[in-house]
């Protein structure tokens, strides 16, 4: 099964842009002690990711009949968010109210869910042929 598709690449690029804007906004509003705005930016960021993944993921599944249970999108989000966040701290762009430990905790907890997601995907894979659900091939 082709795991990396055009839609997934498009999603990764958009996510990279969203994450950079989010990190920049977050660090700036925290530095200015506008904590409500920090929460708002977090919600906007989350909603944007959800909508983008929903649209690109759905189009990807319909067009290619590929059933990957959203794993590709989950892994991509994990890698890009983790990389950008880590680099943000390493390069010293963070505000004094941000702590790198919160990024590490998020990555550990998210990583556990990612492993569970992978196990579910692995189990569901036996119900597919070339990524298409067997029950949908000749329906």
């Amino acid at each position: 099964m082709k795991f990396i598709t055009k839609n997934l690449i498009a999603y990764a690029l958009l996510l990279l842009v969203y994450t950079l804007i989010f990190r920049y906004t977050l660090s700036n509003v925290l530095e200015s002690e506008k904590f409500i705005l920090a929460m708002v930016s977090g919600v906007v960021y989350g909603v944007l990711i959800f909508i983008t993944a929903w649209i690109l993921g759905k189009a990807h599944t319909i067009k290619k009949f590929v059933f990957d249970a959203g794993l590709g999108f989950n892994v991509t989000t994990y890698i890009i968010w983790g990389l950008v966040s880590e680099l943000w701290f390493i390069l010293g762009f963070n505000s004094k109210y941000e702590n790198i430990r919160s990024v590490h905790y998020a990555l550990i907890i998210w990583g556990v869910f990612l492993i569970i997601h992978f196990l579910i995907y692995w189990r569901l894979r036996s119900r597919t042929i070339k990524g298409v659900l067997k029950s949908e091939i000749f329906d």
Binding site: K64, F65, I129, K130, V132
Partner: peptide, 8 residues
Amino acid sequence: LRKFKHLK
């Protein structure tokens, strides 16, 4: 047909 094409 698109599905059958995908499945060769």
